[in-house]
Structures are given as C-alpha cells and as structure tokens.
C-alpha cells in the first residue's frame, strides 16, 4: 500500500523557503529601484506567480497530488479571468468618461509616483 500522507525530504522545504525569500526580496527591489510601467508590472507579476506557484506546489503538496485533484482545484478559478478582463476593459472606459464629464474638477492624469527623496515626512 502506498503512503497515504505527504512525506518528502526536508531539503525541498528548505530550498523553497529560501526561494520564497529570494523572490520576495526581488519584488521588493522592483519597488525600491522604482521600475516603471510595463517592466514593473511584468516583474511584479512574474515574481508573484513564482512565489504563489512554489507555495502551492511544494508547501501545499500540489506537485505530488494526482492530476485529478490538481486540475479540479486549479481549473475553476480560470472563470475569474473573464470577470477580471471585463472589469479592466470597462474601467478604462469609465475612467475616460469621468474625465470627460467631470474633467474640470479633478486631476485628469493620475499623479506619477513621487520619488522618495521628495517626500516630506
């Protein structure tokens, strides 16, 4: 009879533990060095997904589960992407119409992030 529980060499856990720190520091650096725009987004999302992936795969043992459980848990959230895409798409439109109709009273362009040095504290 195969092992019921999830038992794996401790080494893997330490490895992932370390990796999570590395990715966290990396995404922190993205902010610290003030990457902008697409590059920033790209890096943030990549590091986020890497972290999430390792947590799910190793800490939550997804990697060692049978594909049945893996697909049953990971596939359904995909419908959320439709919601996200739709809301993001419509948001641009709502934003634009707010500018058009209330434009006089508000800042038409969101402020660019100020640099740290300029921040009075």
């Amino acid at each position: 009879m195969a092992e019921v529980g999830q038992q794996h060499p401790i080494k893997v856990y330490f490895l992932v533990w370390g990796l999570l720190f590395v990715f966290s520091i990396a995404s922190y650096m993205v902010d610290y060095f003030e990457f902008k725009e697409h590059l920033r987004w790209f890096l943030i999302v990549v590091f986020m997904l890497l972290k999430a992936g390792f947590i799910v795969a190793v800490f939550m043992h997804m990697k060692w589960e049978r594909p049945t459980l893996i697909t049953a848990i990971l596939v359904p959230p995909l419908v959320l992407l439709v919601l996200m895409y739709l809301l993001a798409f419509e948001a641009d439109y709502a934003w634009a119409s707010r500018i058009v109709y209330f434009g006089g009273e508000v800042d038409p362009i969101p402020l660019p992030p100020p640099t740290h040095a300029a921040v009075p504290h």
């Binding site: 641009d92 709502a94 934003w95 707010r98 209330f102 969101p110 402020l111 992030p113 100020p114 740290h116």
Partner: peptide, 12 residues
C-alpha cells in the same frame, strides 16, 4: 482603475 482622484503611492 476608474479613479480620477490621485491614488497615494503605497511604497511611500
């Protein structure tokens, strides 16, 4: 995304 008011910069 629909905000027209300024969004504070979290890192600061």
């Amino acid at each position: 995304m629909t905000q027209t008011d300024a969004w504070p910069y979290p890192s600061e």
